[in-house]
Amino acid sequence: MVAKRIIPCLDVKDGRTVKGVNFVDLRDVGDAVELGQYYARGGADELVYLDISATREGRNTFTRLVERIADGINIPFTVGGGISSLDDAARLLDAGADKISINSAAIANPELINQIASRYGSQFVVVAIDAKCGDDGIWRATTHGGSRFTDLELFAWAREAEQRGAGEILFTSMNHDGTRKGYPCDTFARLAEELTIPIIASGGAGSVADIAQVLTEGRADAALAASIFHFGEITVGELKSELKQMNICVR
C-alpha cells in the first residue's frame, strides 16, 4: 500500500531558509540544502521549498539554490512561489525540481495548468488551493494569503484543475491555517471523494492527532507542515513512529 507522506515545507527568502530554530546536529539552519538533508535523513518523504522572495534577484538566487538542492537531496522535492508562466516552470525543471506548485497563477490563467502538464507531465504539476469557508458555508478559493475571495468554488476548481492536468492538489484551509486547531476533515474527505489525484493537506496541524485525523477521516494522501518541524516540537521521525502506532501506513 502506498504510504501516507509527511512533507516538511521550507520557506526560502533570498536564497536562505527562514523560520526555524537551530537543531543541535545542524550547522546552518538557514542553508536550504543542509536543512533539507536533515529532514530527509529524519524520514521526510518529500520536501517543499517555497520562495517568498519579493525581488527578481531573490528569484534568481532561488533558481541557483534549486540546482544545489537537486544535487544534494535524494528524495523528491517541490518548489513553489512566484511561478506564473511556462518559462518559470521550465527554468525550475531544468534546475532539477521534481514538481512545481502553482497557486494564484493558475487562478488567473487556468490554461497554464494544461500547458505545464502537457509539456512536462501531470506528475510535475501541483495545484495549490488556499480556500476559505465563507459565512454562506461555501468554500471558495482565495488569493493574497486568504484576504481576497475569488468566485471559484473549491470543489469545482479542484475538479477543473484535475481535468486540466494537475497531478496533485495541495489544499490549505485559510480558516484553519495558523490556528493549530486541526484540519477541516469533512472538506478533505469530500475532496478525496470528488478527485482521483492525490491530496496534500496543509495548514492547521497542532498535534499528531490532527495529522492522523486528516490522513484517515480526511483521506488525505500526505500532510505538509512547517512550524511543528521547524520549531523542533516534534521530529519527522517521531511523528511517523506515532502514526505507525496508530496503524497508519507510513514509510
Binding site: M1, V2, A3, Q123, G167, T196, D221, R251
Partner: peptide, 29 residues
Amino acid sequence: KVPHMGWNSIGNLESKLFKGIEGGEYVYF
C-alpha cells in the same frame, strides 16, 4: 489514486539488483 504517487513497499525481491535490501522497503513511484 491515479497517478500512483509516493512511497510504496517492494516485495518478492529476486535479483542481485536488490542485494542488501529487505522485502518491505519503500521506494518512490
